[in-house]
Nucleic acid binder design. Sequence first.
RNA 1: GCCUGAGUGGCGGAAUUGGUAGACGCACAGGACUUAAAAUCCUGCGAGAUUCAACCCUCGUGCCGGUUCAAGUCCGGCCUUAGGCACCA
Length: 782
Amino acid sequence: MFHASNQSDKPKYYALIEFPYPSGQGLHVGHPRSYTALDIVARKRRMQGYNVLYPIGWDAFGLPTENFAIKNHVHPKLVTAQNIARFKQQLLSLGISFDWFREINTTDPQYYKWTQWIFLKLFEHGLAYKKEMAVNWCTSCKCVLANEEVVNGGCERCGSEVVRKTKSQWMLKITEYAQRLIDDLELVDYPDRVKAQQRNWIGRSTGVQAKFATTAGDTVEIYTTRPDTMYGATYMVISPEHPLLKVWQDKLSNIEEILAYQEAASKKSDFERTEVAKEKTGVELKGVRAINPLTQKEIPIFVSDYVLVSYGTGAIMAVPGHDTRDWEFAKKFHLPIVEVVKGGNVEQEPFTENQNGTMVNSDILNGLTVAEAKKKITAYLEEKGIGYAKVNFKLRDWVFSRQRYWGEPIPIVHCDQCGHVAVPLEQLPLELPEVDSYEPTDNGESPLAKMTEWVNTVCPKCGGPARRETDTMPQWAGSSWYFLRYMDPHNQEALASPQALQYWAPVDWYNGGMEHTTLHLLYSRFWNKFLYDVGIAASKEPYAKRTSHGMILGENGEKMSKSRGNVVNPDDIIREYGADTMRLYEMFIGDFEKAAPWSTASIKGCRRFLERFWNLQELMTAEEELSPQLESAFHRAVKKIGEDVETLKFNTAIAALMALLNDIYDCGAVTKGELRLFTVLLNLFAPHICEEVWERAQLGDGMVCRQQWPAYDESKCIDKTIEIAVQVCGKVRCRLEVAADIDAAHAIAAAKASEKIAAELAGKQIVKEIYVPGKLVNIVAK
RNA sequence: GCCUGAGUGGCGGAAUUGGUAGACGCACAGGACUUAAAAUCCUGCGAGAUUCAACCCUCGUGCCGGUUCAAGUCCGGCCUUAGGCACCA
């Protein structure tokens, strides 16, 4: 019924919500908050003459389905199909104007064929690579997690402990796009908090990478954001995993102690390692020392787990006078602390302030400000060949392998002769084979590894024996490009036709949850940028505008969950109050962008409002015009509702409709023209009842949702008379009814003429008279 | 520690650029209708003092201070709280 065409004379509008994961629990009351909001926008755009694309689909790969399948010995395909059927029926009952002709499903081979195709493109461009590395391993899911999926050292999904494990993994080089992912935030309209969170996650820092010579005759590279403090570097720290330890092992007299420390560090979980309040530990290397390139002094080298191997060079110069961690470490190990920036007392506490401060004890830098010193020393280090300016990011490459069944197979073949070879494009989709058991294997491999017939294949390159990759892709794969598939969902030849991609891109308005800011939102921006670079996606950024809805909490103000017993089932609400009431309530519940507690008691108000609207039919007169008493109220309402929908203020838009309805009841009658206009306005929020009233009261041809969005007349938004406040010295003393177009002189005169004000001013001298048009008069008197 | 937000009645929440604080709704109280209840309709509903009653008055948007004729809104300093990041050099 709401079918978007890829060819139209109308301007296009692409509204998008995050497609749901069809879980076994069915729709959550949180889903409709987002869907109804953009449904309102989509409906308004259609009425405003746009060709609107508002699609829906299913992000259906994932662990809960797989776990359910394991437990109940059913194929996840079947579980998925059942869940989708339930979700679909629930969404249909809400009357969301999705384009169901474009429904997609990430687990459909015709869909994941293109997910695999994109992976091979990434592989072809060197952005997908396999690497032996320490990864985050969820002990409960028996699966590798991306950094983005680890929350407080626990699994984002199940909360279980995450440990480090060395495994060979497929990685995606998202770091290649780090700078552009930051820069291009300038091109899009996202909430500041979303942009800030993404920048924070990517974590750009500027500094210097420099070489420190050692007494072993080689060098250690360090990274620092404070090259200005290099004269104060009194020791050096390398991470326990640093490769130089192996190189130096024969020279180190305390190698046993170091290896023991290394061993202990490797056993710690992520959670333990990143615990903040932890006391610093470490071991000094006996036998190798470094040389501060500026002071030429020999300084000790320590190994400590407060330096991470995965960031920078895995080694730092330690400046205890001006870094909190170095200071703590120096105090514990009684290392010298040298002040190089004046302003604090470095014996008492580190002086980390880097705005104001003058360099001291720093030879060529003495007397400079920190900023000047940074510039000068960077140039100096470059000139001497000691170091160079370098930008670093906290963002790591994306661990893309999962050792699970229910995901897209990674279309790669391992050949002893040719290495990693792409499955030829014409063999896509590489479908998931049937397996007997979906359980991961004991050694942490995917259940696919047991499918020897499937695993053993021939190399596409040399024809020799080869093995298929048995890892699958993470759940994020399918959702990283789905907005492109919607543009042309049935295309067999390409992920979408160039014309469709050109026509619809970018998504004009994308609404979703804050929880996806550093996961899905970042991943899909990355994929879109890559696809843009290879000439497929038509816009640099996938989403022109992003908004975020707040969570709907339980009645007790806590997050809804089964264990808390505060879950509200949308089916129950729809059954008892109807879909329109449900939609209206979720939009009226509060500020759209903030979390709001559910209140079943408050729903009644929305239901009552709709009943009062329904009963207007009995008050309807045959007149077409707006009645003089209500004309300005209607014009104001059209204006307000139009504006509020654009700024996500659905709650006040509905309040305006309620106020307008109260005004109509005060008049005791409604003209046909008024009811028509009211129905048109309300139809965005409550489509079912409005279509019904539209037809029964014979308000017009066709359906309400096909009408034009009404215009308002600015000049008619104003009443003939208005009430202004009269203040004396800023305190309201009375209110006056005056003509709306009254000028300052007359307004002030009218104010003074009132008995109350005259009495108030008696015997006082007027100092100042202020008139704020349409608002108030303020008389200042002594 | 750093980065974002947010603190307003019994409750959810309103309040362009500083300009009548509490829109709209819920709950509650009183009344009408009814044999009765539900539903519906009408009225009231921040706190305090005063009054037979009403008007009027005083206070009031987390706390302290400031700017202004005028501050929920702007500035400075705190407190509390939610979300994100975090031994990131």
